[in-house]
Amino acid sequence: MRETLLQVEHLKKVYESSTGNVEAIGDISFSMSAGELVCIVGPSGCGKTTLLKCIAGLLRSTGGTVELDGKRVTGPPPNMALVFQEYGRSLYPWLTVRGNVELPLKHKKLSRVERDQLIDDALEAVGLEQAAKSYPWQLSGGMQQRVAIARAVAYQPEVLIMDEPFAAVDAQTRADLEDLVRRLHLERGMSILFVTHDIDESVYLGERVIVLSKSPTWVQEDLTIDLAPERDQITTRALPRFTELRTHVYEQVQRAKRGQAVRPAA
């Protein structure tokens, strides 16, 4: 058994608003081991982004704990990197692609050579060596998201968190980016927590899929995906087992939407 990297226990988040308090997250507990690729799916509006922001230390939870590497998360931890859905707003348009990837490395104590090497390596990993001098807004949406991934890769985090990163790109680009994520996971052993609303995507990418209930959210199912680590857009998706898993997750999400699943007594 691999060592536990991320531990979420009894996480709870209540938003206060003028129209009344909204309980976004009821009670979420799960853990993730080092080197794992875990996908989180759930019906829309189930508080996926809220959960991620709590884990990333960007939002204070109302109750429960998040531990990364045994240390409790209170602010953004230094050994974590985020890829947002809104690539257009998470990349800085006044910096070049290279500048964007370099920015988080500036205060890491690295020599010029080491830093350049990290950047070159990260850009190569996402296939953007040629675009280093361009500005993000000169690139297509898919390429911009690659830049954001390169930035996270160069940062060398222990865990990479992705918040519906491919929701805004077209289907073909999306397939390429999914394979990129799989490759980063396999070749570099990166631990990735991947949030999506796409059921196919979660099954194709994940080693585990965590299905969330509708809001106030709890973990409805924690499913191990027993597909081979080497996956392929055509053959993997054609496997009977893939279809089975997909159907299973689909049914779970449908149940979650209708609120049929019963929350176990704590």
Partner: peptide, 8 residues
Amino acid sequence: MAPSSTRA
């Protein structure tokens, strides 16, 4: 806390 308290 009352619902609208933060805004107030």
